[in-house]
Design a binder for these strands. Structure first.
Lengths: 182, 182
DNA sequence: GTCTATACGAAGATAGAC
DNA sequence: GTCTATCTTCGTATAGAC
């Protein structure tokens, strides 16, 4: 097999440790020194590979962002009613599987709008809201936002809840908030 | 009229500026130096009057905490069905009126459990969940949590939305999530 | 009692040697 | 590409003037 370039190897190690630390201790409570120590390098090395702590965060959130983009893209190919159903089901699944990072997402929402690195994620969130609401009505869009934000919070609350229980709760709440859902 | 003691005057000034700054910039983004500069005193003076930055936050959150305590106490005197209705209506009103601080609350939720100064607020939140759910059923409790967390997030989202619009959204979401509500 | 001045450790970030 | 050294600012703590 081909050798992995040193550059990519170091970057990957940093991202992996950051995922682990952000998911357990949270974003704010994890220092660059924590990440550097876990990887076995210096703070300066982390900052050489990434554009500050937000840069590390952006790389950590990249995979789930890609998954969300795929979700939205696939829903766009469906007729409205099926698009709503697909968005709801797939987003619940995505959230349940990325629970650790959803906790991080909750933490950084207040600063999400300020960092241009996350404008893509914000835009995807807006598209998801439209898909879930299935209409342009302001009140229904608000219900979709309620559902999304409630889900983000629910993924955080009890850390060790069975996935199936979390799925049931999220699905029930979605069905109640969005009557058009089956 | 009686002269205000210097001690209380300084404390009040600090709390008022902290409320303003926390509400606009957020808790983490507001430094003790910011507060001290706004008041016109030194950092050390702030720390003389309050037990660190969390101490300032505790004083800032004290009025809404008292209001929440009053809400829960009054609901406890009512029969179950009316208690649920009262909890929902009064909590929506409390949240709408304290929007700026609700934003702060959202920000500090992850660290709320670690600071003993806020254990009272956490306990009140649990009691409120029980009142809203109106039952011990785990799923309905989760729906109440969903409603509460969605509301906290909704109070944050668009800063300059009319109060009445926010009330309607919160009320609609609560009614859908908690079918026992009228 | 009330406040100013000062100092400490840790954080994110940068500069420059190797 | 990685390091050490350094800078600034943060929260925090203490000594001492008034």
């Amino acid at each position: 097999m081909a050798a992995i370039p040193v550059r990519e190897r170091t970057r990957r190690d940093i991202v992996n440790e950051a995922i682990r630390l952000f998911g357990t201790k949270g974003y704010a409570a994890t220092s660059l020194q924590d990440i550097a120590s876990a990887v076995g390098c210096s703070k300066a090395t982390v900052l050489y590979h990434f554009n500050g702590k937000p840069g590390v965060l952006a790389s950590v959130l990249e995979p789930p962002t890609q998954q969300l983009a795929a979700l939205v893209a696939e829903a766009a190919t469906l007729p409205p009613a099926q698009a709503q159903e697909h968005a709801a089901t797939a987003f619940i699944e995505l959230s349940v599987q990325a629970r650790g990072l959803i906790t991080v997402l909750n933490e950084i929402i207040p600063i999400l709008g300020e960092q241009p690195e996350f404008s893509g994620l914000l835009a995807l969130g807006e598209q998801l809201l439209g898909l879930l609401a299935g209409t342009d009505d302001e009140l229904e869009l608000a219900m979709a936002r309620y559902a999304l934000n409630g889900m983000l919070a629910e993924c955080r609350d009890p850390a060790n809840r069975p996935d199936d229980e979390l799925r049931l709760i999220c699905r029930t709440a979605m069905s109640r908030l969005l009557p058009a859902l089956s």
